[in-house]
Design a protein around this nucleic acid. Structure first.
Length: 250
DNA sequence: AACACTTTCAACCGCTCTGAT
DNA sequence: AATCAGAGCGGTTGAAAGTGT
């Protein structure tokens, strides 16, 4: 499945972005919304490849990005989530409003990984996590299709993924900014599109969920069953500190 | 003040995914 | 079924900033 590079590097600007470039990108996205990254730079008058534009927007220019130091709570959450999810930074970012996967990844590499070592905790991901009646297998990341968007709060119409969800599908991205950041839909009330992962099994090791068959399996075999299990998984993830504690001490 | 070393983080790269044709 | 375009993810890089000597 060979394909050409995302852009011809000839004549394209690289390296740090200038204020003028930032302004061009912001203005364009404000007017036309994000998506179509391949053609966006041309239309916006930028000598950048689409990939570079997307990265700049996602990691730096987006209005909802939170700046400043990580709080102790965020530190704790990152450590716990990483112990559960591994280096799935986009999934982790989906649970930290205003933080980007890149930022969290950098923060982990610079601060938290060292701290974890100092504390004598092994940040490595356990193969399984025991909890009461079920285990959660280390989830494999997969991109979520529009079919499998499942919200954290069960609301029927809240299938709007947070703007922080780096795993939104191309289809979702083609929606306007306005639709994603609509008033009254405060991020992050809905589950991040990318954070649907994990497989639940019962104590007899029966797979009661749907083991993704490939690294990015987007299609649960049974939507209702999957949704129920996924909600359980989310509850465990969000509410049960023991999960993180056990996983760290495993 | 000047230099060396370390840390931080924005940006890039390569890969794999989904959806359309 | 095969191919391609568009997109997202995670690992890595390297320049700038910070710190120590």
């Amino acid at each position: 499945m060979g394909r050409a590079p995302c852009c011809s590097k000839v004549g394209l600007q690289r390296g740090p972005w200038t204020a003028i470039e930032d302004t061009l990108l912001i203005d364009y996205i404000r007017a036309h919304g994000q998506g179509n990254w391949r053609y966006l730079p041309k239309k916006a008058g930028l000598l950048r490849c689409g990939k570079s534009c997307r990265l700049r927007w996602m990691n730096y220019l987006r209005p909802d990005i939170k700046r400043g130091n990580f709080t102790a709570d965020e530190d704790d959450l990152i450590i716990r989530l990483r112990s559960l999810l591994g280096n799935r930074w986009s999934l982790i970012a989906g649970r930290l409003p205003g933080r980007t996967d890149n930022e969290i990844k950098n923060y982990w590499n610079c601060h938290l990984s060292k701290r974890s070592k100092h504390m004598g905790k092994t940040p490595e991901v356990p193969s399984t996590i025991n909890n009461k009646n079920c285990k959660i297998y280390k989830p494999k990341p997969f991109r979520l299709t529009s079919v499998s968007i499942i919200t954290r709060n069960h609301s029927a119409d809240s299938s709007i993924s947070g703007p922080n969800s780096g795993t939104a599908t191309a289809q979702e991205d083609k929606g306007s900014l306005a639709s994603k950041e609509a008033p009254g839909v405060p991020w992050p009330q809905a589950g991040s599109a990318g954070d649907a992962g994990g497989v639940l099994v019962d104590n007899n090791e029966h797979d009661i969920g749907s083991e993704p068959s490939s690294q990015y399996d987007p299609k649960p075999t049974n939507d209702n069953k999957f949704e129920k299990l996924y909600q359980e998984y989310l509850q465990l993830l969000m509410a049960d500190d023991n999960v993180a504690v056990e996983s760290l001490s495993a």
